[in-house]
């Protein structure tokens, strides 16, 4: 595979400059922080409550911003320019995901601090959040590639936000409910499970199930985004 650090860096810097001058989209990153501050003040102390602002960050910042960045490239006819340049699919997708990945990392870390969540196994949680970020980034890329404008992308991410952010709340319906079985395999639910086990100092072998499910979702979403991206290099 043709990978160029210089090209990835160039796309990252371009996105950073564009994003920092786009006040409408860049202000979105503040919302999860406000929510985390609120939850922190309320004094929530369950993993479910800790992870609500974190899952909101993943859908609202990661998926939404990524979808908007990709959709804007399509709307302005700049994505085809990138595709026609010597940059490879990997250079473009990685370069275009790097800004949101780093931004998500910072917001998640600050949110954890604001809600008062102190992971006992910090590496496990960091790894799970990194994997989840990659999944939500791929979802954002898919939404952006499917839509033609920022407006369309903003609408396309709504189901993602509802299903993945608020899906875990359906667990309260009880194990016998059909929704429970569906919601149980969502990456956001598994992220909470993993955090609960981790806070209970579970052995790594007990975490493999949750990690596997999140990894499978991530790999699937990345594969779809790459296929879709390659399809978009052509008109038909």
């Amino acid at each position: 595979m043709n990978i160029s650090v210089k090209r990835i860096q160039a796309i990252f810097m371009k996105d950073y400059k564009e994003f920092s001058r786009n006040y409408v989209i860049s202000s979105v990153v503040l919302m999860p922080l406000v929510l985390a501050l609120f939850y922190g003040r309320v004094g929530s102390n369950s993993i479910d409550m800790y992870f609500l602002p974190l899952n909101i960050t993943l859908s609202m910042v990661t998926t939404y911003v990524q979808a908007c960045l990709i959709a804007e490239e399509k709307e302005r006819n700049t994505l085809r320019g990138l595709m026609m340049s010597p940059a490879s699919t990997f250079d473009i997708l990685f370069g275009k995901s790097l800004l949101v990945f780093l931004m998500t990392g910072i917001i998640l870390a600050v949110s954890c601090y604001l809600v008062g969540f102190a992971p006992k196994q910090i590496i496990v949680i960091a790894l799970a959040l990194a994997l989840s970020t990659a999944f939500y980034l791929a979802l954002g890329t898919i939404c952006g590639l499917f839509t033609k404008s920022i407006m369309e992308a903003s609408l396309a991410v709504l189901p993602v936000m509802i299903i993945f952010t608020f899906g875990p709340l359906a667990l309260a319906l009880g194990e016998d409910h059909l929704l429970y079985k569906i919601v149980e395999v969502l990456p956001s639910t598994q992220l909470i499970r993993l955090a609960e086990l981790s806070q209970a100092n579970a052995a790594f072998t007990e975490l493999i199930g949750a990690f596997s499910i999140i990894t499978a979702w991530t790999a699937g979403a990345i594969a779809i985004s790459v296929v879709l991206f390659n399809k978009r290099t052509k008109d038909l």
Binding site: A10, I11, K14, K17, E18, R76, T78, R80, G81
Partner: peptide, 16 residues
């Protein structure tokens, strides 16, 4: 279909 990055300067577009 050759678009430009609207919030970047001419020089920044060419730099990319």
């Amino acid at each position: 279909n050759s678009g430009l990055y609207q919030r970047l300067s001419i020089e920044e577009n060419l730099l990319l």
